[in-house]
């Protein structure tokens, strides 16, 4: 359910109807920013939003995204450490 994709707001096209132009990998589509609109629509320009059926449904939180990626990277490093330890243990075993 619910195909949603990240896009960047590049311009406000109709302030009265809260419409903006969003760009998704070089493709442009006018979207409604009603769900994420604050007092100043122009503040949205440059923001990354999650787009679903022509609406910007959420502003993507960069700090949270970075944190998620950090956790993923941590798992990768932990795995490398484990593999290194396993190799070390094996080398020790082989030596004995």
């Amino acid at each position: 359910m619910c195909l949603g994709i990240p896009g960047q707001i590049v311009a406000i096209t109709d302030a009265s109807r809260q419409m903006a132009m969003a760009e998704i990998s070089g493709v442009r589509r006018e979207v409604s920013v009603v769900p994420v609109a604050g007092a100043d629509l122009n503040a949205l320009i440059g923001a990354w939003v999650l787009i679903h059926v022509g609406f910007a449904m959420a502003v993507i939180d960069e700090a949270e995204a970075a944190e998620t990626l950090e956790a993923l990277r941590g798992l990768g490093e932990a795995q490398e450490t484990l593999e290194a330890m396993a190799e070390g243990a094996k080398a020790l075993e082989d030596a004995q």
């Binding site: 195909l3 994709i5 998704i24 990998s25 070089g26 493709v27 589509r29 787009i51």
Partner: peptide, 12 residues
């Protein structure tokens, strides 16, 4: 192309 991927992502 990235744009073609973009069209595909938008429209599923």
């Amino acid at each position: 192309r990235a744009e073609v991927k973009g069209v595909c992502e938008i429209l599923g």
